[in-house]
Write a protein that binds this DNA or RNA. Structure first.
Lengths: 344, 344
DNA sequence: CTGAAAGCGCTTACAG
DNA sequence: CTGAAAGCGCTTACAG
């Protein structure tokens, strides 16, 4: 492996000049730059990142904790998210370092260690939970981070975040179903009350109200778990009611698949007799028939914003200016229309 | 951040002794060790990894290229694999660095760069394809790597690998179905001929032959794509044949889900009227009803073996001893029995 | 525009 | 068992 010194000797300049050729080429005279560049190519020189990091104390590595399954819904799009995150990181010359950690506050030792030993510059958090302790802790330690997902139920959100407007997504799904002629739209939700679920539910409720559609509590079913079975059962309820629904907005693709199955069982046709939509546009959505209309989170944009915020000018690195507003970005999801919600 | 020097001053020893306390504690006298350890704790010292790596030229980081979807089957268990890989890496004091690269030989520039700039010590490869160029290239460059999955159709497999015995898995599924009384077992396969598909198919064929069951070509259907629809259609074929099958071994969970749907549509009960098995034990398997019997790859063991091989004594670092056999580990998958193949 | 020198925080032969 | 010293390969004020 060639070193800076060898390149310098070869190009007959000082190491400083070679370093500048790489990091501040405008400082060199064109002819010098060209000569150095030639030597770099000839010797196939690659700067040693460890040496650079030792000097600059920046590793250009971003930590991401791989969520441990079983977590239900989220991991069906995890590879999409990771791919987007990697790509965004690489665009800014960085990479993603993966690690595992216990959930809750116990895991913070791992985060702290990774940062203290300078394996990473900062963290991207996801799988944010209601009352997630990580954000507050990292902020207190002044360790750079950005969160995908808000910490719900907190009076103040610690630190910067990027999130998708679930309410807007569900509202858009309702409007889409309305436009295809549906007038009684049910909602399939999750069991435990979470900020995420309430957010999406509220979007359904608001849109129905605005369109003059029914939106009473009976139309929103909390499924006991995020499975196809539970989705099918809840769908059966909604179909067997005195006034059956003619469309269903599901809070996840899995539940929507359950709805699809129940329709199938009854000889009803999704997209014709009823409209069905899911959430996440997971790989499953395009694998069923009719394919599932689903609400897609803009993964690439999410990832880009996350990296932008994390690598941008430090929000609060000094500890002063604490009152400065955190960086917060709420992105719009998109309804990907497929067969299950009709031709429109 | 405390440094080695500061700890040394605090403990009133040389930096060398502190370093030894961390890396070779047996060299210190117990009382010295204790004193140093106390100083380390008091100052909350964490060794700077970049400095260490610069010195030792080992970064303790393993590169893994995130596969770009859509790739069909594999990404449903990607998070399981990543989690296992991370855990195994951490057990050996290492971490996973994620990156993206173009497929094929173009991507090798990325691999080379990552290694040359010392961002990683080596690579774990997965999504191995027939005629995958990466293995040969990395071997030639003497860049450490280990592959999850064999390069099929090569006369000699370049470099060490870990793989799962797909044939054994499918054979086990056939035997399991036989034990639950099935006597005419179909096979659902993929469109393009790949080493992976042929391997699994051969397991079905061999087991059927050994049990005296039919295994003619008509019983093995190549689905045009890895979707629920395709699986359902192929299942319909197998059921409408002159001699209908009473069980189906599917090469993927998705295809098995298609089989389940087709049975459902016909009023047939999986696990009672027919036995169905999938492959990969993806999150989907436990989310349907009846839950899907599926062949599970031992992810934790795979990951452990991969890291063991990669971090073990260099197989061929010197370039001599080229004839030494590569490290190769073929692991047994496990049939996870659920409702879709009957109570047994 | 270019160069000589110090230093980032470790580890590792080498002496004592 | 312990210590003084060199060096891993860079970057960065500081002079010239």
């Amino acid at each position: 492996m060639a070193t800076l010194k060898q390149v310098a000797a070869h190009a007959e300049v000082s190491v400083q000049t070679v370093s500048n050729a790489l990091n501040a080429p405008h400082r060199l005279r064109p002819d010098t730059l060209q000569r150095v560049t030639r030597s770099i190519e000839l010797l196939n020189y690659r700067p040693n990142r460890n040496a650079r990091s030792l000097r600059t104390s920046a590793v250009e590595l971003i930590g991401y904790c791989v969520p441990s399954w079983p977590d239900g819904q989220a991991h069906l799009v995890m590879d999409q998210f990771l791919h987007a995150l990697c790509t965004a990181a690489e665009t800014s010359g960085r990479h993603i370092l993966l690690f595992t950690a216990p959930t809750g506050v116990d895991g913070m030792l791992v985060y702290d260690d990774l940062h203290a030993r300078r394996l990473v510059d900062g963290f991207v958090l996801s799988q944010t939970e209601t009352h997630d302790p990580r954000h507050g802790w990292l902020k207190e330690q002044q360790i750079p981070f950005v969160s995908f997902g808000r910490v719900w139920k907190e009076s103040t959100q610690p630190g910067p975040w990027v999130d998708v407007d679930g309410a807007a997504g569900c509202a858009a799904a309702v409007r889409h179903l309305y436009e295809t002629g549906r007038r009684r739209i049910g909602f399939l939700s999750w069991p435990k009350i979470s900020g995420l679920a309430e957010d999406r539910l509220s979007g359904w409720r608001t849109a129905c109200r605005e369109l003059g559609l029914p939106h009473d509590a009976k139309l929103a079913v909390r499924c006991p778990e995020d499975t196809i079975d539970a989705g099918a059962q809840a769908t059966a309820e909604l179909l067997d009611a005195d006034q059956p629904v003619d469309a269903i907005v599901a809070i996840s693709d899995i539940l929507a698949l359950g709805a699809l199955r129940e329709l199938n069982r009854r000889g009803l046709r999704a997209g014709i007799d009823l409209g069905i939509t899911g959430f996440d546009d997971s790989p499953l959505a395009s694998v069923v028939s009719p394919a599932l209309t689903s609400i897609r989170q803009p993964m690439d944009q999410i990832a880009t914003e996350l990296i932008d915020i994390l690598t941008g000018p430090a929000t609060d690195a000094t500890g002063n200016g604490d009152t400065r507003p955190s960086t917060e970005r709420l992105l719009e999801p998109e309804v990907v229309i497929r067969g299950s919600s009709g031709p429109g």
